[in-house]
Structure formats: C-alpha cells, structure tokens
Nucleic acid binder design. Structure first.
Lengths: 238, 238, 238, 238
DNA sequence: GATGAATGAGATTTCATTCAT
DNA sequence: CATGAATGAAATCTCATTCAT
C-alpha cells in the first residue's frame, strides 16, 4: 500500500507536471481536471486543495512554464560570450527551449487567445522578462563597439524577429507542412531551419556594418523605403 | 407566418460567420453551440441541420477561413509584378490578411494543437495552398534572371520566413507586449514591423546576389556555419 | 413509453410542486436538485432549463407559496361579513391556510433565516400583501362604527397578534410538545387552540369598547401600563 | 512549542460558540464544518475530536442553547413575585431571552423542521422544560386565590400564547415587515410590541375573573362559540 | 491535544445532441 | 426550414470525514 507521498512539495510538483501536459494538449477548456487527477493518482479535490480552482491551476502552470522557458533561454549567461556568438546562442537557445518544451507553445497560444489575461496580472511573470531586452541591447552595443553590428538597431525588433522565426516554425508545424508539402519535424529539417534563421538574424544585425572588415549594403535600406504604400518606418518600436 | 429568412445560403453563411467568431474567441472546446445559435438568432437545431455536429461546423469554419485567407494573400495576382515588388507585396498581403482576419490566427493555432487533424483530411484545403510555393519559386526565378535575387534560394524557406514574421507578431501580441514592455497594437508599431520584416525578407533574397550590380557576401553563410554544436545545414527543406 | 408530457406549463407546475415539498422538508441547503428531478421523473437539467438555478427555483417556489397562502387567507372576501365575523374568519382562514400548507411555514422560516432576501426583492410578493392591512383597518373601522370594537386599534398589531398565534403553534409544534408535554397535533387540540386564539383576538378588539351594549374594562389598560420597566407603549407600530 | 490554548474546556466552549453562530446563520445543512473550524482558528480535526461528528456538534449546540434560554426565562425566580408581576415578568423575560439569543430562534426552527428529532431524544433537554408548566400553574393558582386571575385557565395555553407572541415577532421579522410595510426591528417597535403582548396575556388571565372586584365578561366566550364550522373547544389541551 | 494532507461520495451545473411538432 | 422541450453524460467543485505525524 506504499503510503501516498505525504510530501506536499512533491505532490504540488506532480500536479503541475501533469496539468502542464493536459492544458497544453487540450487547451484550458478542453483540459479535464479529472484526467489530471487520475494521472497524478490523486483524488481531484487535491487539485482544488492546492490550487483553488481550475483557473488557479492554469495560472500556476503558466508561471512554472515561463520560469522554465526563460531559464533555458539563458540570456544572462550568454552575455559572457562575444557579441556574435552571444546572438547566435540566443537564437539557438530560444529555438531549443521551445523545441524541448512544446507545451510552452500551446500554453502561450492559449494565453494569447485570452489576450494575456493571466500574464498581465502576474508581477512575477513580468519580472521574468525584464532582463531580456537589456541583454539584447547589451549584446548589440558591444557588437557595435566591436564593429561587427550596425548602430541603431532596436533590440525589441531583434527579439521579435528571432522569436517569430523560432516559434512559428514549431507552433504552426502542421498547417505549414500542409501548405508547403514538406516535413518540418525531422531533425534535419529543424537544423536547416535553425541555421537559416540564425543567418537571417545575423544578416540583419551586421548588414551595413563593417562586418568584420568590409562595409556592405548601405543601399538596401534605402531601396526598401521606396515601397509605395508603407510609410518610412522609424525603426523604433512604439 | 413566413419565417424570417427562408434563404438557406444566407442562413448558412450567418451561422459560419458567428461560429468563426466563437471558435476563434473560445477555441473548439470553449465554444458553445448554444451561444453560436443565440448570436445567429436561430435555434440550435439549425446548426445541426446544416452542419451535422459541432465538429462539422468547425471544419466548415476552417475551410471558409482558409479560402478567405488565401484569396487575400493574392499570390497569383502578384506574379504580374516585377520580382522585387512581387515579393514585397506577398509579405504585405500576408501580413494584412492576418491583420484583417484575426480569427484566422486563432483557428490555425487550434488546428495545430490538434496536429492538423482537419486540414490534413481535407483535399480542398490542401489544394488551396498548392500554388503558393510555385508562385514563390516563380518570383525567385524571375528575380534571379533579372539579377536582383540570389540563386539557390528555397522558396519554402522564403515562405516560412515571411509567414513567421507576419504571423507571430500578431498571434503572440499579448505575451510579447509583456515580455518587451511595448505596445504592438498601434498602427504605427505595425507599420514599423511590416517595414522591418519586408526588409529582412528582401535582404535574405538579395544578399549575395549582384544587388543591382555588385556580387556580395559569399563569406557570410560560411561564417555562420562555424557555430559549434549545430551541424552544417543543407538549406534544403526535407 | 407514454410520451413525456410535452406540456411546458404542466412540467413547470410539476417541478414547482415537488420542489416545494423538498425545500420545505430539507431547507434550501438540504434540498437536492437531484431528488426533485427524480420525483418529477425529469432529468435534472430541466430544472435548470425552467428556473436557471437552484436559487431561481427556490424563488419561484416562494412566490407560488405566497400566492397560495394569501389566496387562502381570503381577507378580501371576508370584508363582506359583519366585522366580528370577518375578524373571526380572518383568524380561522389564516390558521387553516397554514395548517393546510405546512410547507409554507418551513419556507417562510427559511426566508427569515435569509433575512427576507428574496421576498424583499420581489415586487410581486410585496404586492400580494398590500391589501392585508387595509382589509383589517376596514374591518376595525366598521366594527368601531358598529360599536363592537374599540377605537384606536392599530391593524398591524391585530395582524401581528393573530399571525403569531396561528403560526407559532404550527411552526414550533415539536419543541412546544416537548416543553409542555402535550400533543398539539390532534384535531381536538388544534380546535381548542383555534378557539382560544380567536377569543384572544376578539377580546383585544372589543375590550374597553361598548361590546354590543355594555361599556367594559376601562380600568384594564391603565393597570397594565403600570408595569415598571417598560415604557408606556404608543400603540402605534413603527 | 506550547500550543495556543491547552485549556480543553475553553476550546470546547469556543467551538460551541462559533458553531452556534454558524448553525443559526446557515442551518444544519448550510453550515460548514470547515468554516466553523476557521472561525475557531482550529483545525477541523478538533471539532471531530470534541464532538465526534457534525451532528454531534449540532446536538451539543442545541443543548447549550436550551440551557441558556431557559436560564434567562427565569421562571423559577419569578415565583417569588406577586402573580400579576410574575406573569408580566415571564412574558418579558421570554421576549428578552429570545431577543438576546437570536440564534436560539433559528436553531429551534431547525429542530422543528426536523420534527424535534434531537430534543426528543435528549433526556437533559426535556428536563429543562419540566418546571415551566408547574411554575405557570403555580402563578395562576396564586393569582386566582388573590382574586386577580380567572379560574380554570390551562397553564399550557398561557405558555403557548405568550411564547407565540414573543417568538413569532422576532422569528418572522423579515417577512412580517414586508407584509405590513413597517419596521419591526427598532427598539421603540419592540417595546410597543412587548407592551402589547403583555396586555394581551394579562387580559386573557384576568378577563372574566373578578378583576380587582367586578365579575365580567361571562358572555364573551359564549359568543365566540357561535362560530359555525369550529366545534366548541374544550379549553383543555390534550 | 493538535495539525496538514488526503479522500470518496456526491453536490450543482453545463453541454452537445435529439425528439416531437 | 424551423422550433422549444427534453436528455444523458460528464464537468467543476464541495464537504464531512479520516490518516499520519
């Protein structure tokens, strides 16, 4: 009859683990408190004992997920590397973190469907992201000082770009596969993609700058702005 | 006694419209047949009469959404323009189509959570996407012939890139706003972003090519491949 | 398989009948929606279909009960009789109405435990009681004109008195039986009590008045007011 | 480590106090063991330790309540006064006891809904009420000997009357207020009512008796018996 | 004596779906 | 085409009670 754990911290963690899976797989509404409880080998009231309500549990799952994700993005440790490597690592860690935590993607999608209701209310979750932009700015500035990156790059744009390129490929894998008629799930395909998006991001940051030694591409931006219907962008996020 | 509409096609369309909203806002599981019926000012039975089941309705909603979205991407009409303009337009149309159909994003997310269950089964939905890669290939080839684009670019990578950059910004607006501490919803911010991603895509296609006149950048890709842990990517999607 | 009634009015009434019994017997919290449904031979969702919630059902039960009770008090029809008979009838009808509707007592007790939350919010319930005081005043005035009742009697006091004497005997039968060691439930006991309380009420209204022909008892009230610790009462309800 | 109270008697009393409040406010079924425990700042287990079950606690609450109530009715001490004063005091003490212990009313209502299940089983509770009728009989007899009260009055009727008049006003305050459109909760209203019911009770006991000196009112009872449908009451409780 | 963790049974409520008209 | 009435299954949540320390 192996006595049931009686270890609240472990019990809590067990619930969170299984709840994460369930919420990611089924969405908030599709998730069943019952089935989480069964997987935990607990009676369902325990979930209420620990988290008060289904929504309370969902929020706890979100928080845990953000923490894990951010810790795996390792943006702080990355500061130690030289700028080019740091940026490459940031892309790579972001991609890998999402690849290794596929539930994170589903949970974030859910949060966005809810217009960020939960994340916005949680001071803790916001704080997790605070250092991110600073780290990128730090990398960009050092890169500019080293002469490898252009000046005047908005770190937010960099993060938006790399986040998009990492996230969407994994998030929308299935519809993209149908649209493109390719397999995006193979390890090979993923490596190719990671390589591609790293190139894209680096290209953006170095273009026009004396990349290593050569000044390049000054003309490009200018040409782009000639596009008819879109006003000259300020390259400053709002 | 003449019942209200008596126009089956219109009734069907009305149901689809409201169902789209509901499914997008609440997800498949969160959506309530009841509340769709109420919004339609119809009795629930009608939904079953026209679409057999909640899932049948969901599939119909998906199909309609894909059609609308693809038609607004206008990739076929774009072929008429010169390659550079065509590519710029494709980015722009893709972004605008998603911006104008926010439900599309939620529905596609839902589909991806379900691992593309519905889209994969529907020949009709797959056909919608068939011309897309061809169009991009066509543009790229003409651009290469014109000397404005590099050779050897995989059209799938181009679409993946532009799709990511268009979609993620809109899809994950709320969590990104919290992460970055900025407002992504303003018209200005969106224009800036569109401008930025257009630049990124163009940069990718032109870099290394005799942009206007000079062959450039051959070295870059090489440098990227120096990244330690990631194997040399083949730049061919699977 | 006798097709289930399909007569909404009847269904509604059936639910109310059984709900009345259940709520009276078990109280609001003790009552089980399930068991009401079973007695109605309906699935429990029907109760929600008709009354939205357990509380909604409770309120509907209360309203129906008040209507029935008030109609059996017949205070309006009683106006036709001569004042003495009218008052006697009012006592009798009130007692009989409560005797015949024992659920009414339990429901009213419940309402009072809730501090009248429901009755106070329902315009309809309040309106039911509006004519009551007027009727009593009408009877008292005619009685005074006829010379059978005293002047200056507050109709509210009359109703409070007769209501107390009718209600408490039935409401608290069981604890009173234990306290007094008697059986209050027999028909004989009830008749004795009804006779007694009728006498009390009549005595109050006639005392000091020229009952029929003799002026009586002027001294009494005075004596009573000599009671030490209680201030002279104003004989006007607040 | 010394635990908070370590005074079992005090702990027991604390539990009873809070349980009384909870049971009175919510009824037996509505009361929550949890919420009693919280109010006591004790763990639920303690309630079970001291009282075995929710029902055990309820019974203990009832017993305590009856004791308190009876002690405040002070019917035994009242014997010392002269009959008129004694009766007046009994009314007053009964009213005041109920006024000061509003939970008592709710608990007794609960008991009556349960058909006196608990009180009937408890020898102790029954014993509490034993002296009551004797006291009233004692008062009535002394009053008759003194020539202030009528002969042949059933003490049970006296108690039933005064109990009704004291209890109902307080018990059904909220529904009565709505029915009559008056405020019964003010101190003034209560004093008026107490004065009124004292008058009623005294009137009943003295009427027909040689009040002070005159024999009166023999005719009255007779008239009352003329009421059609009700058999001549025996004025003897069963 | 006292506690936090755990439970099983059952409560109210919801919901996709069907029946009868 | 269209509806209101009805259902069965299941969802979330609650609660008196007990276990292990």
């Amino acid at each position: 009859m192996a006595s049931r754990s009686r270890d609240p911290a472990r019990t809590r963690e067990k619930i969170l683990t299984h709840a994460t899976t369930e919420f990611a797989k089924k969405g908030f509404d599709g998730a069943r408190v019952d089935s989480i409880a069964v997987r935990c080998r607990l009676s369902k009231n325990m979930l209420y004992y620990y988290f008060k309500s289904k929504e309370g549990l969902f929020v706890a799952v979100l928080e845990r997920m953000y923490e894990k994700l951010r810790s795996q993005q390792k943006d702080l440790t990355v500061r130690a590397s030289d700028p080019v490597t740091a940026l490459e690592q940031l892309v790579q860690h972001t991609f890998t973190a999402l690849l290794d935590n596929p539930e994170a993607i589903r949970l974030m999608n859910e949060e966005n469907r809810h217009k960020g209701r939960h994340i916005r209310q949680s001071r803790r979750m916001r704080d997790l992201y605070n250092p991110l932009v600073d780290t990128i700015r730090f990398i960009l500035e050092r890169g500019r000082d080293d002469g490898v990156f252009r000046a005047g790059i908005d770190p937010a744009f960099v993060y938006l770009s790399l986040s998009s390129l990492c996230y969407h490929y994994l998030s929308n894998q299935y519809t993209l596969e149908v649209a493109l008629g390719v397999d995006l799930g193979s390890e090979q395909a993923r490596e190719n993609w990671l390589s591609h998006i790293t190139e894209l991001v680096m290209m953006f940051c170095t273009s026009g700058a004396p990349a290593r030694d050569l000044p390049l591409l000054e003309a490009k931006p200018g040409r782009i702005t000639k596009r008819a219907s879109v006003k000259k962008p300020a390259r400053q996020s709002a």
